[in-house]
Amino acid sequence: MSDPSPTPASAAPRTSPRRAARWPWFLLVFLAALAAAGWYGWHWWQAREADARAQVASADHRLDALAQRLDAIRDDQRAQVQRLQQAEATNRVLRDELLGIGQRAALLEESVTRLADPNRDGVQALRLEEVEMLLVFGQQRLEIAGDLTGAQRSYAMADAVLTAVKDPAYVNLRQALIQERAAIDALGADPRAAALARIDAFARGLSEAPPVAAGPAPAADAPWWKRAFANVFDIQPRDRVVAELPSDRAAALAALQLELTLARAAAERRDEAGFGDALARARGWLERLWPESAALDARRAGLDEIAALPLSLSVPTLGSTLQQLRQLRAAADVLPSERP
């Protein structure tokens, strides 16, 4: 039996010529498909980008339109606020005018009511006006000018006018006027005039009896050196020195007269504090002119009496009649308006 001939190991398989000619076509088809896919993808991306840009442009357009609408709404809102403010101002003016008209109407109604009141007497009203004016004049002349005579005349004229009023409602008022008039008549002289007269009398006393420089004579039992040098020097207390030289005494006397003049000016304006201070300074100048003696004590006492004098008129009931008259007139004016 014959063995088949062995196949050599180095022999390679043979490729079919048909299969070898087919693979380039597959490569070309793949490349064409890849190119087609790339072209389609590029066109799809371009279309998507265009669509996105169109959406962005549309959104921007809508945002611009919305901003314009918001601006228009804000303008309309401002216009509405201005109209509301103008309307509020107009309403406020109208309300004030209505209130003013109401007040004027109330005043007119009150005036008509007063004129229509049968109990109101025109002559009596004029007399009460005159009484009030005279009382005001009298009080001012007494408090401001210190004219006691003028005040008494004003109160006397007011009493005469009030006597002509026959209304029984004013009987108590006339009694109050009589009491106040009696208190004013009891004042007597003006205390300011009395104080000025006392100052003038004190100044005349100084001019009639001026201070004389006279040192005390040394006693007989004084030491020899004190009797020998008595005309050369004099020892005085430190807290109180009496002027001895003529020039010093003339200056002290002039200062005393000046303080008295200041006291007169303070009395004229009824300044009690300045009046007392000026007399206190004058008292100090007295001690500069006179040594301790009975004459100095008398002049001190005179200045103290002048300083204790009052300068203002004091009437506790001053103005009570005027106040009562005004209350009665106010009550008479209120009563007609309260009637139905």
Rank of each mutant, 00 (worst) to 15 (best):
A164S: 09
S337W: 04
D167L: 03
R62W: 12
R204L: 13
R264S: 01
F229Y: 01
R283E: 15
I235Y: 06
E110N: 12
Q179D: 05
S314W: 09
A72M: 10
P4R: 05
A265Y: 02
A151S: 15
L107E: 13
E88L: 06
H43K: 07
R48Y: 03
D159V: 08
L99S: 06
H43F: 03
S207E: 15
P237E: 06
P191D: 09
A158Q: 07
R141E: 07
E244F: 06
L66F: 01
L126I: 06
D121G: 14
V123N: 10
D121V: 14
D304K: 05
A255L: 01
A156H: 04
A263S: 05
A189V: 07
S2F: 07
A116H: 04
A243D: 01
A160R: 11
W285M: 09
A220Y: 08
V56Y: 04
A213F: 05
P8A: 09
R204N: 14
A125R: 15
T163K: 10
A295I: 12
D271Q: 00
L115D: 14
A186V: 00
A164H: 00
D147Q: 02
D248L: 13
A47C: 13
R53F: 05
A228L: 14
T261L: 04
R74C: 06
A217G: 06
V81T: 14
L134G: 05
G122Y: 03
V123L: 12
A156L: 10
S207I: 10
A116P: 01
E180W: 00
P6F: 00
P24G: 11
R127Y: 09
A12C: 03
P340L: 09
H43E: 02
D190K: 06
A158E: 13
P316G: 11
T321I: 04
P8T: 00
D117M: 00
R339L: 09
G41W: 01
E272C: 02
F137C: 06
R204A: 15
R300K: 14
A252S: 11
E338V: 00
R120N: 10
A278Q: 07
E49F: 07
A57M: 13
D333T: 13
A201T: 09
E180P: 05
W23T: 03
E272W: 04
R240F: 07
R270F: 09
G284E: 11
S58G: 15
A20Y: 00
R238Y: 12
A250M: 12
P210C: 04
A252Q: 02
W39L: 10
W25H: 11
V56I: 13
G38K: 00
G100M: 11
P316E: 08
T163G: 08
A266Q: 04
W285Y: 10
L148H: 04
D75A: 12
W45E: 14
S111R: 05
A197L: 08
R249W: 12
D200F: 04
E287V: 11
Q80L: 13
I306L: 00
L279P: 07
V112H: 12
D121A: 14
S314E: 08
V171P: 11
P24R: 07
D185T: 00
A209N: 15
A330P: 08
T15K: 00
A222C: 09
L313E: 05
A266N: 11
S337I: 01
Q80I: 05
L177M: 03
I101K: 12
L108S: 07
A282F: 01
I235N: 05
R153V: 14
E338I: 01
L253M: 08
M1Y: 05
A282V: 04
